[in-house]
Design a protein around this nucleic acid. Structure first.
Lengths: 252, 252
DNA sequence: CAAATCACTTGATCCAGCTCAATAACATCT
DNA sequence: AGATGTTATTGAGCTGGATCAAGTGATTTG
C-alpha cells in the first residue's frame, strides 16, 4: 500500500528528525534537541510480513510501536476463536497503548501486508517524558486522542446504519491517506471484506452488498481491494446528514 | 472527615489521604508525601444536583474531575438533538480524559443524582506528574485503562446480543458497587431505561422486556430502579458462555 | 385532590441486516 | 495447466430487535 522509500530495512534506521512521519508521530511539536533524545531510545524492529504478529494478547508489554510503513490490524481474540477487530493502523500511528495499564497486551496486532515499525521501550519513554514536559504532554494527548477515537466508534456501533458505517469507514481511510501524502480518492484497502465487516459490526455479505450498491449509485468504483471514491461530498452527507432520524434522546 | 483549612464553608474538603476512595482514585500507589503534594492542587467543587452539567461538549477544558459521591453520565450530543450515552460513572472514577487531546471537552457530563466531585486542574497535574514519576505512571495507567474499557464496549456493541449486553451491564455495576463497599447484588440504578438502552445500543422497549424476562427467569428482581441480582453465576454464564456462536473469525 | 406529565411496560407488526446457500473470481501449489 | 483453497459476490428467506401504538403506574403541578 504505502511504498515509502525509507531505503532498506534491517539495520538502517531513519532518525526521527529525518522521518517523514515526524509530523504525525510522537516527535510532533518537540524541540529538535528533545527529538534527538527521543531518537536515542527508539529502535527499528525487523520488518513484518503479512500475517506476522507484532504482539499477541497477553504478551508481556515492553514497548509501544509506531507503524512506519505498511498496515496492521488490532483485534481481541475470544476464547472460542471468534474475534473483534479493534482497528486498522497506518504509518505514524502508535499501537500498544492499551497495554500500559497492566503491563500486558489486551489485544493482538497482526501485519496486513509487509510492515515496518519503530519500537519505543515504554519504561525508557516514561522516564524520558518525566524530563521532557512537551513529550509528556504529547503522550497525554496521544492517549486522550485514542480515547476520542474509540468514543466515535462507540457512536458508530451504537447508532449508525450499515450504510453510514461503511461511508464513515471509507472517509476515515480517505482522510488518513491524504494526511500521509497519498490520494484521498484512490487507494488500496489492505484488509479483507470479512475484517471490514467484523470491525464495523456487520456481516461480510452486508459489506459486499454495500460496496456494490455504492458503486451502482456512482459513489465509488471498487475492484476487490482497490477503491476509487467518486463522490466524497455525498459520502460525507451520508454520514453527517442527520442520521436525523428518530432523535434518540434520553432526558434526565 | 478531617477538614483542611480552606476558605469557605462550601469548600470543606476531605484530604486525599483521608478519603475512602484513595485506593480507587489517583493517589493509588503513591507515597504519602506525594499524596500530600497532589492534595495541594485538588479542589472540591460545589455539589451538583440531578440534571446539572459538570461540563458540556466543546467547553474549554481546565480540569479532570473525580466523582466522590453520586453518579454521572457522559454523552455526546448530536447536532439533531439525539445523543450517544458513553458511560455512567461512580465515585472514584475520573472523567474528562477525552478532553486532554485538544483542550476542549468532546462530550458532556451530567449528574444523575446529587453528586460531588474533586477538581484537578490539568496543567497543575501535568507539571506535578513531571516531578512525581509514580504519579505520571498512574496517569498513563489511568488513560490506558480507559482505552481498555472502551475496547470492551466496542466488542459489546459490535458482537453481543441484547441479552448479553444487559447482563454485562448489570454485572459491571455489581462489581463496581462491590468494589466500593456496597452490595454486589442489591443496588439502585440512577439512570433511566432510556439511558440504559441508549448506552447499550438498544431500544427502551427492548431493555424493559429484558428486565421482565430476567425477572421471569429468576435471574433478578427489579422494581423500577431497584435491582436485586438473584443469580450472578448465571448472568456470568450468559456473558461468557460462548456467545459460542458462529465463531466469527476474519482470517488474514 | 384531580389533572397533567413523565417513565415504564406490554403487545403487535415490521424491516435492516443476518444466515444459509450457491456461484464466481482469485490465489497458491504442484 | 489443473486442483484446491480462499475471498468476494449475489440471491432468497428468516429473525432479533426496532418501531408503532396503547395502556399503566409514578411523580409533579395547580
Amino acid at each position: 500500500m504505502t511504498n515509502r522509500k525509507v531505503v532498506s530495512f534491517e539495520n538502517i534506521k531513519v532518525a526521527c528528525k529525518d522521518c517523514s512521519l515526524s509530523t504525525l508521530c510522537l516527535p510532533m511539536g518537540l524541540d529538535p534537541d528533545d527529538v534527538e533524545r527521543l531518537d536515542g531510545i527508539v529502535k527499528r524492529s525487523r520488518p513484518f510480513h503479512r500475517g506476522d504478529h507484532i504482539f499477541r494478547e497477553s504478551d508481556k508489554f515492553y514497548s509501544l510501536r509506531v507503524i512506519t510503513s505498511g498496515s496492521i490490524k488490532t483485534y481481541t481474540p475470544n476464547e472460542n476463536g471468534s474475534e473483534q477487530v479493534l482497528g486498522f493502523h497506518l504509518p505514524g500511528e502508535v499501537i500498544g497503548l492499551d497495554a500500559i495499564q497492566n503491563s500486558h497486551h489486551t489485544c493482538s496486532a497482526v501485519a496486513l501486508e509487509t510492515t515496518a515499525a519503530c519500537d519505543i521501550p515504554f519504561d525508557q519513554l516514561e522516564s524520558l517524558s518525566s524530563s521532557i514536559p512537551s513529550l509528556q504532554h504529547q503522550m497525554y494527548r496521544l492517549l486522550s486522542r485514542e480515547i476520542g477515537h474509540e468514543t466515535e466508534m462507540l457512536t458508530l456501533l451504537g447508532k449508525k446504519s450499515a450504510e453510514e458505517r461503511l461511508a464513515t469507514f471509507l472517509l476515515s481511510f480517505s482522510e488518513r491517506f491524504k494526511k500521509r501524502g497519498f490520494s484521498a480518492s484512490d487507494f488500496f484497502l489492505s484488509m479483507s471484506r470479512h475484517e471490514i465487516g467484523n470491525y464495523l459490526g456487520l456481516a461480510v455479505e452486508t459489506v459486499s452488498r454495500l460496496f456494490t450498491r455504492f458503486q451502482d449509485e456512482e459513489l465509488l468504483n471498487v475492484e476487490r481491494k482497490h477503491v476509487q471514491l467518486l463522490d466524497i461530498e455525498r459520502l460525507h452527507e451520508m454520514v453527517h446528514s442527520n442520521n436525523g432520524e428518530k432523535s434518540q434522546q434520553s432526558h434526565i
